[in-house]
C-alpha cells in the first residue's frame, strides 16, 4: 500500500503546481482552473489523513470542500463572463480599475 507520506507529497506537488499557475497565468479561466487544482490537492490531503487515522471526518470534509468549489466555480465564471461583456477581455492584468 502507498504510505500517507506518498499521498502528502503528491498533494503538495499538485498544490505547488496550482499555485504556480495562479501566479503566472494571465488568462482568468485558467487561473480559476488552477484554484480548482489547489482545492483538489487539499482534498487528497484530507482523504489521506482520514485513512491514516481511520476516521470518516476527512471524507465528510472533502465533500464540503467539493461543494464550496462548485459554488466558487459558478460565481467566478459568472464574474468572468460579465467582465468579458463589459471590457471584452479576460486578462488579469487589464482588470485593474481598483489598482489592485
Amino acid at each position: 500500500m502507498p504510505s500517507t507520506q506518498a499521498y502528502l507529497m503528491l498533494s503538495g506537488t499538485l498544490f505547488a503546481v496550482g499555485l504556480v499557475g495562479v501566479i503566472i497565468r494571465r488568462n482568468m479561466i485558467t487561473v480559476l482552473m488552477c484554484i480548482e487544482l489547489m482545492l483538489n490537492a487539499v482534498n487528497i490531503n484530507l482523504v489521506a489523513f482520514s485513512h491514516h487515522i481511520a476516521s470518516l471526518e476527512g471524507q465528510v470534509f472533502t465533500i464540503f470542500v467539493i461543494t464550496i468549489a462548485a459554488g466558487e466555480a459558478a460565481v467566478g465564471l459568472a464574474i468572468i463572463i460579465q467582465l468579458y461583456r463589459l471590457r471584452s477581455t479576460i486578462n488579469v492584468d487589464e482588470a485593474r480599475t481598483l489598482h489592485g
Binding site: E36, V47, T62
Partner: peptide, 21 residues
C-alpha cells in the same frame, strides 16, 4: 485523483469527485 481516492477506501468521495468535478 478519483482513482487515488478509491485507493484510500473513499469510494463515495471518488464517485462525488467524478460526478461534481
Amino acid at each position: 485523483v478519483a482513482v487515488l481516492f478509491v485507493l484510500r477506501s473513499a469510494e463515495f468521495v471518488a464517485a462525488v469527485q467524478v460526478l461534481v468535478y
